[in-house]
Simulated assay, not measured.
Amino acid sequence: MQPSEFPVLSRPSARPALSGAGPGDFTEAWLRNRRLSEHTRDAYRRDVAGWLAWCAARDLDPLRANFLDVNSYGRSLEATPAARSGQPLTPATVARKLSALSSWYDFLVKLRAVEANPVSGADRPRVDRDHSATVGLTPEEVDTLLAAAEAETGPTAARNRAAVGLLADLGLRVGELVSLNLSDLGAERGHRSVRFVGKGGKPRRRALTPSTAYAVDAYLTERATTQGVAVHELTGPLLVTATGARLDRHSVFRLVRRLARTAGIPAWAKLSPHSLRHAFATTARAEGVPLEDVQDAMGHADPRTTRRYDRDRHNLDRDPAYVIWAARARRRS
């Protein structure tokens, strides 16, 4: 770490007000010190900005805040309606915001801007690891959504088929999908593949299924023809808009809901690209894919996270008691 990369800070005994020292500099230095996707960086940046604004409204120096202040902020967040739904923020959202703030303060502790992290002693919301608010899809609903994409015509139809195919067959996060570049496509030992940087800055690689590889090839062939170049001459993002800009996550959200509505899926208005990720995990487990393989495919550090995505995990058909009983019956026969 080069000292010149970070703002010059006073010792804790003479802490300056953060607003006077340039909070954006602290935040950007903290983010540069982390291996994060751009989407996560933006979210963390907003989380810290929210805390600084809350402190400023109360004439509170963030460098002198204690766990009681953080608790008050947490209660304030819990009473704040979400911009889209108008409903209070969920415990998981509040916990995520406080987690980002805790990381920010850990960074300031290392820089000796504060003596201790005030978030570490705060009362954070309890988040049930066995629950997810994402609305899932059954395998049959995924099939109808893909069929709706197949039936589409128009200038963006080929791109849309490639996008939903990647979401459904690989269970990608929407941020991973829109960050893909043409240079990420490849081939390894007979497999068509795609490489990308996953959550936490971890390099990932996945195999493309034959149907998704076909959809991607068809899209790129159409795109190259439109541009009057060969496919291998295409550069830049994998998925682009009509103007050549990178497709953004909001467009993918709208795409999934529009296709789901066309497919007649009842919960279409509540679906998101993450719904396809949940369906990927549930279907993989239902088809007998070992938990650790699903965990690796989804890029989860903790298998408990993967289990939360498995919507069919409480199905009594999968109770191990049946397997044990069947094995005992075979031994006795």
Rank of each mutant, 00 (worst) to 15 (best):
R46S: 06
L63R: 14
N71P: 13
L60V: 08
D61T: 00
R64D: 06
R46W: 01
A43N: 11
V48Q: 00
W54T: 04
W51E: 05
G50H: 01
N66Y: 15
W51V: 02
R64A: 04
R75S: 15
A53T: 10
N66T: 12
P62H: 14
W51Y: 11
D61G: 03
R46M: 08
D61Q: 01
A56Q: 12
N66I: 15
G50V: 01
R45Y: 02
D61L: 07
G50R: 00
A56L: 06
V48C: 01
A43F: 12
F67I: 05
D69W: 02
D69T: 07
Y44R: 11
N66K: 14
L60M: 10
N66V: 13
P62L: 10
C55S: 06
G50T: 00
V70I: 13
G74W: 00
S72N: 10
D59R: 13
D59V: 14
R45Q: 09
D59E: 02
D69N: 10
D59S: 15
R58I: 01
W51F: 13
G50F: 01
A49Q: 06
R46I: 01
L52M: 09
V70Q: 08
W51N: 04
L60I: 07
W51A: 07
Y73T: 11
F67W: 14
R64N: 02
L52H: 05
P62T: 12
R64S: 08
R64L: 13
R75T: 12
P62E: 09
V48H: 01
V70Y: 07
G50M: 03
A53L: 07
V70L: 09
A43K: 09
V70T: 08
W51S: 12
N66D: 15
R46F: 02
D69Q: 05
A43R: 14
L52V: 07
G50C: 05
L52I: 08
A43L: 11
N71F: 03
W54V: 05
A49P: 03
A53Q: 07
D69Y: 04
A56M: 11
Y44P: 01
N71Q: 04
D47Y: 02
R45H: 07
A53Y: 06
W51G: 02
Y44M: 11
R58A: 04
A57E: 08
S72A: 05
D47P: 00
N71G: 11
G50E: 01
N71A: 08
D47C: 02
D61E: 04
L52C: 07
A49D: 02
V70G: 04
N66C: 13
C55Y: 09
D61I: 03
L63V: 12
A56C: 06
G74F: 00
W54L: 10
D69V: 04
D59K: 11
P62Q: 11
D59A: 11
R46G: 03
Y44S: 06
A65R: 06
S72R: 03
D69I: 08
V70A: 06
F67K: 12
V48S: 00
R46K: 05
A53P: 08
A43V: 09
L68H: 10
A65P: 07
N66A: 13
R75N: 14
R75C: 12
